[in-house]
Amino acid sequence: MELDIKQIMERLPHRYPMLLVDRVLEMVPGKHIVAIKNVTLNEPFFTGHFPHHPVMPGVLIIEALAQASALFSFEGDSGVNPANPKMAYYLVGVDQARFRRPVVPGDQLRLESTAEKISRSICKYATRATVDGQLVAEAKIMCAIRILED
Rank of each mutant, 00 (worst) to 15 (best):
V24Y: 09
R98A: 05
E2F: 09
P85R: 02
I33H: 01
A66W: 07
M27W: 09
M56T: 04
K6F: 15
A126W: 00
T47M: 11
R15N: 07
M18S: 09
V131D: 02
N81E: 13
C143M: 13
R128F: 00
L3V: 08
I62K: 03
R101P: 11
M27L: 15
H52V: 12
F72N: 02
S119P: 11
L148T: 02
I145W: 07
A88V: 14
P57L: 11
D77T: 13
C123Y: 01
I36P: 05
R100G: 02
R98G: 00
V136T: 10
E75G: 00
D150H: 10
H52T: 11
S78V: 03
V24F: 10
T130L: 13
R120V: 09
A126P: 01
I33A: 10
F50L: 04
K140E: 15
R110N: 10
R98Y: 10
L60Y: 06
G133Q: 06
E2Y: 02
I33N: 05
H32F: 12
R146W: 02
I5P: 14
K31T: 10
G58F: 15
P13M: 06
A88F: 11
D107H: 08
L148N: 06
R98W: 10
D22G: 07
H53T: 03
P57G: 11
F74P: 04
V59A: 08
N81I: 00
A129Y: 04
E63I: 08
